[in-house]
Design a protein around this nucleic acid. Sequence first.
DNA 1: TCTACACCCTGTAGCAACTACAGGGTCAAG
DNA 2: CTTGACCCTGTAGTTGCTACAGGGTGTAGA
Lengths: 134, 134
Amino acid sequence: MKIGELASATATKVETVRYYEKIGLLPPPARTSANYRAYGNDHLARLSFIRRARDLGFTLEAVRELLTLSDDKAQSCDAVDGIARIHLTEIDRKVADLTALRGELDRIIGSCRHGTVADCKIIETLAPRERDKA
Amino acid sequence: MKIGELASATATKVETVRYYEKIGLLPPPARTSANYRAYGNDHLARLSFIRRARDLGFTLEAVRELLTLSDDKAQSCDAVDGIARIHLTEIDRKVADLTALRGELDRIIGSCRHGTVADCKIIETLAPRERDKA
DNA sequence: TCTACACCCTGTAGCAACTACAGGGTCAAG
DNA sequence: CTTGACCCTGTAGTTGCTACAGGGTGTAGA
């Protein structure tokens, strides 16, 4: 399989495949006489794994750990579970942060009276009051 | 005001203040004889504005637009409102994405039977099935 | 046989929004 | 007079790619 075929089979860009190789996530494949990368099914499986984990929002470092763990079939699954749970906690934190932000922003937008900038409640909320500076 | 004072007054790092100057968000201040940056209240106000907008999740480019708009007091507030609404939409999209992701991840974690990696449901979900590859 | 075109190669620079040095200079207190 | 906290410039690092630039390769049609 050439890099373009592997890339389209996994909905990945060619540059991204080379990038994964460069950072050691994907092992360097054999080369053809023309120095083209020649991939096998093991590469396809590994790249699919990476893509799915990335789609679930795992960082590349977490993906690297998951790949290492998945290679040791006899090991306990708890380490895998732990990584996933940490990621879940992180997502919960982000959702909470964004939701709070959304509320704040919504409140500010709701205060807009569509006048001029001089009376703009949105700008006023962002700028410190003149009286506080005096 | 020296850069360290301005920074601590706005909960900003000194390097970040210099960065904002470099990208043109904060105008270059006067310098002392020792070449130290000397800030005034206008800089404090502007940096406060930037920080509040950033805290609300606006990108630096959006902040730049908001600052430009806030300088033209006679203009309609609608452009400001528009930028804020675009940002709100973006936040809603992110929350929706993360919430979907969270559900998926939670489902996967829930399937964990705490056995060995060979039987790990989390790894199985990420890896393509062996039978699909044969 | 030529040539166009799609693909492949390496290497580097760019994105957001900072952060962290390295390697200097300045200034006030003790 | 020296210590330490501050200031300066400039560059490189972070995450996860993406986009060239400047080449080589392979194949299909005229």
